[in-house]
Computed example of a mutant assay.
Amino acid sequence: MTDAPERRTTLWVILASATLTVMAGAILGPIVPAIQSGLGVSESNAGLIITTHGALIVLVSPIAGALIDRVGPRRPFIFGLLLYAAGGGAGLVVDSFGPLLASRAVLGVGVAFVYTGITVLIYQLYEGQRMERALGLRSSANSVGAVIWPLVGGALGTLSWQAPFGVYLVALPLGLLAVATIPETGIRGASSRTDAKSGLAGVLAVFRRRPGLLSVYLLYFGANVLLYSIVIFYPQLLAGLGITSSLSISLYLAANGLAGGVSAAVYDRLIERTSRHALVAAALGLWLVSFAGATVAGSALTAVPSVVAFGLGLGLVFPSAFAWIEALAPAGRQGQFSSYLASAGYTGQFLSPVLFGPLVPLFGVRGVFGAAATAAMLGIVALAVVRGR
């Protein structure tokens, strides 16, 4: 791919769209109490407004991936942006719980198509080092979105609980830009006879032939489980240190996102000098240091390195996972197998509080980070075993 101006515009549309997949839930995080009050619902029901789209992403992503393999990524990607605007922006005018929950389901379907569409567009529009750079920038855009969109949501939430829903409408002009700038890539290649079997039997046949795919999904699942251990439980750790204001807590989480954005932005330069396995090993080492540090942090200052170290590692793991899928997925089925990555990631986010939550009453919130440090250590051991074979 050349560096022509129109191609650079295409990349910017893709990267801007990548921030939307993070924004889907993050922009409403700061206004959950306002949503609860505005709708007159319980805290758990207000939380469903934030999480429902994630369940739809897990369920719909494989469908989106299969469609992308059939018709190419351009049209499903644009369709996803339009659904995103409709489902997300509906909150501006919907003021009752049931219809709002339904609109969040529509949003989740849109995110599924956008998320997998972005992945396959990068695979097909870029090659070699340019693809590595685009994947790194995509992860960097996600991290920057995780910093910016919650701040936007919090600011608009001071106007009304419905105002932040208007930001979802940014997907509409992005969809129009995509129509003008995203080229039709067509359908690449064809799978081998063994890899082309349909249904569950075909998927299992691919996994038998390419077992590395399962390792990538497990890595991405685990990374998201650990990410949400920070998102959900680090504020509790900070509260124990006397840091309770929402602004102060948001600064720690912003530091995590910014650190991930920095490491992801230089991912392509790092991959020129070393291997993906080495980068993932470095990330696991950073996570071990991060979570071990969280278990002993005793002040506002000593709590900073843990979130920074975790973010730096995340910025190395995410683009590595996407690049491995591009290398391992059968030709002509990149949409299908990259969609499983999306499902694995959002499942990890959903299960994180389920896996770590029971540890809090038993060992306190620091026990969560002790368990996370153990998981990082096990990851290092598993990677060493795999590399040693």
Results as ranks from 00 to 15, higher is better:
Thr2Gln: 15
Asp3Met: 04
Arg7Lys: 12
Arg7Ala: 03
Thr9Glu: 10
Trp12Arg: 11
Ala18Ser: 15
Leu20Thr: 03
Leu28Asp: 07
Pro30Asn: 00
Pro30Val: 01
Pro33Gly: 10
Pro33Ala: 14
Ile35Tyr: 00
Ile35His: 00
Gln36Gly: 12
Gly40Ser: 08
Val41Gly: 00
Ser44Tyr: 10
Ser44Ala: 15
Gly47Glu: 05
Leu48Glu: 07
Thr52Ile: 14
Gly54Cys: 04
Leu56His: 01
Leu59Glu: 03
Ala64Tyr: 07
Ala66Phe: 05
Asp69Asn: 02
Phe77Arg: 01
Leu81Asn: 01
Tyr84Val: 12
Gly87Lys: 02
Gly88Glu: 03
Ser103Ala: 15
Val114Tyr: 02
Thr116Ser: 12
Ile118Val: 14
Val120Ser: 00
Ile122His: 03
Gln124Ile: 04
Tyr126Glu: 13
Gly128Gln: 05
Leu137Gln: 00
Leu137Ile: 07
Arg138Trp: 09
Ala141Trp: 00
Leu151Cys: 09
Ala155Gln: 11
Gly157Ala: 05
Ser160Asp: 04
Gln162Glu: 14
Pro164Phe: 01
Phe165Cys: 08
Tyr168Val: 04
Pro173His: 06
Pro173Ser: 06
Ala180Tyr: 00
Ala180Trp: 06
Ala180Pro: 00
Gly189Glu: 04
Ser191Glu: 09
Ala196Thr: 08
Leu200Thr: 08
Leu200Ile: 08
Ala201His: 11
Val203Arg: 11
Leu204Trp: 13
Ala205Gln: 01
Val206Ala: 03
Arg208Cys: 01
Arg209Gly: 15
Leu213Gly: 04
Leu213Ala: 10
Ser215Asp: 07
Tyr234Gln: 15
Ala239Ser: 15
Gly240Ser: 12
Leu241His: 06
Tyr252Cys: 04
Leu253Thr: 06
Ala254Ser: 14
Asn256Thr: 11
Gly257Val: 03
Gly257Phe: 02
Ala264Cys: 11
Val266Ile: 15
Asp268Ala: 15
Ala278Tyr: 09
Ala278Glu: 15
Ala283Asn: 12
Gly285Glu: 03
Leu286Phe: 14
Trp287Asn: 03
Val289Phe: 14
Ser290Asp: 07
Gly293Glu: 07
Val296Arg: 09
Val296Gln: 11
Val296Met: 03
Thr302Ala: 14
Ala303Gly: 10
Val304Gly: 10
Ala309Val: 06
Gly315Cys: 10
Gly315His: 06
Gly315Met: 06
Val317Thr: 11
Val317Gly: 06
Glu326Val: 02
Ala329Tyr: 03
Gly332Cys: 06
Gly332Leu: 08
Gly332Gln: 05
Ser343Lys: 02
Ser343Val: 09
Ala344Leu: 10
Ala344Cys: 13
Gly348Ala: 12
Phe350Asn: 04
Leu351Met: 15
Pro353Ser: 02
Pro353Gln: 07
Val354Pro: 00
Pro358Glu: 08
Val365Ala: 07
Arg366Cys: 08
Gly367Ile: 02
Gly367Thr: 06
Gly370Ala: 15
Ala373Leu: 03
Ala373Gln: 02
Thr374Ala: 15
Thr374Cys: 14
Thr374Ile: 15
Ala376Asn: 00
Ala376Ser: 14
Met377Ile: 12
Ile380Asp: 01
Leu383Pro: 05
